[in-house]
């Protein structure tokens, strides 16, 4: 029964105008923007979703998407977000966290106050778990503070994988051997499972960076790692995302971006801090009037 359906969907023709409507819809709902030079990328993922929903035309698929039947918006977003990363990626920022950021953050802490660290988007969990491992391996005061690490993403499929904590051995390529032995158990030749204690040290949640209601639930972070997501946004969404992130930080809190991203071009709310290991952005301690 199914094969003729699949056959038919494969032959579906999608026009330039269809893609434009889809992109506009996606932009309005998620803030993610794609232009024509990403057409191949869009077509491939769109074809996947048309097949998966057994739609017989783009119009029929688009109707499903607009009515959000069977959570199709979420499925499409999942298909559009790229989820490949590895542990200890951009370790210079982790080094900077331990060498510079934490000392400064602790100056403002009262006894018993938690240190809150946010990885957004966290994809399949490599970054928040890397933060936890790095702190345990490299910060001599790790047991002195209650450290809360939150990993958030818009992609629920990635979040599930993050919470499952099963990784291909490729994700381990930057980890020292003793770290692998300590925090991972081998499932087979190609897969490992993260230590349950490490898994429990990170809380995973679904968040849309440009949705102010989502973001309002996240406050008082000391450090936010937000790498390589602002590049998906256009200027307007990028600024909204940056300002949402600003509100999520405690005064004096820091944000780390991807190496090709600079906050200065996005928002003037942050102070640029050049540390030996990384350039990071700080929410000023005393809020200034930015009007």
């Amino acid at each position: 029964m199914a094969p003729p359906e699949v056959q038919r969907t494969r032959a579906i023709h999608v026009t330039q105008e269809d893609v434009r409507r889809l992109c506009e819809f996606l932009y309005r709902r998620t803030g993610m923007s794609f232009d024509d030079n990403k057409r191949y990328y869009i077509d491939r993922r769109l074809a996947e979703r048309i097949t998966a929903t057994a739609s017989n035309s783009f119009q029929s698929y688009f109707a499903t998407l607009r009515s959000d039947a069977e959570h199709e918006i979420e499925h499409l977003v999942n298909a559009f977000t790229v989820n490949e990363t590895y542990f200890y990626r951009e370790d210079h920022q982790l080094r900077c966290m331990v060498s510079n950021l934490l000392d400064d953050i602790l100056r403002r802490k009262t006894t018993g106050e938690s240190i809150r660290i946010w990885s957004i988007p966290c994809s399949t969990g490599e970054e928040p778990y890397s933060i936890a491992m790095w702190l345990m391996e490299n910060w001599s005061e790790v047991d002195k503070y209650n450290i809360e690490i939150v990993g958030s993403d818009i992609d629920t499929r990635a979040l599930k994988a993050a919470a499952d904590g099963v990784y291909g051995t490729r994700a381990l390529m930057r980890l020292p051997r003793h770290v692998i032995e300590r925090y991972f158990g081998r499932i087979d030749g190609n897969q490992v499972r993260i230590d349950p204690g490490l898994r429990d040290s990170v809380q995973f949640t679904r968040v849309n960076l440009i949705d102010a209601r989502d973001m309002a639930l996240y406050r008082d972070f000391d450090i936010v790692f937000c790498r390589n997501v602002l590049i998906y946004f256009d200027d307007a969404s990028r600024r909204i995302a940056a300002e949402n992130l600003y509100d999520c930080l405690r005064p004096g809190g820091y944000i780390c971006l991807g190496h090709s991203e600079t906050m200065s071009r996005i928002s003037t709310l942050f102070r640029v801090c050049r540390f030996p290991d990384a350039i990071v952005y700080q929410r000023p301690e005393a809020d200034h009037d930015d009007s």
């Binding site: 936890a132 702190l135 345990m136 790790v142 047991d143 503070y145 209650n146 450290i147 690490i149 300590r182 925090y183 230590d195 204690g197 490490l198 429990d200 040290s201």
Partner: peptide, 23 residues
Amino acid sequence: DDSSLVRLYYRETLEGAGFEVEQ
């Protein structure tokens, strides 16, 4: 300990030295 990261740090330290650890 109420901090999961602290429990993990102590557990890893002690298990690495051959102790059997519960939390």
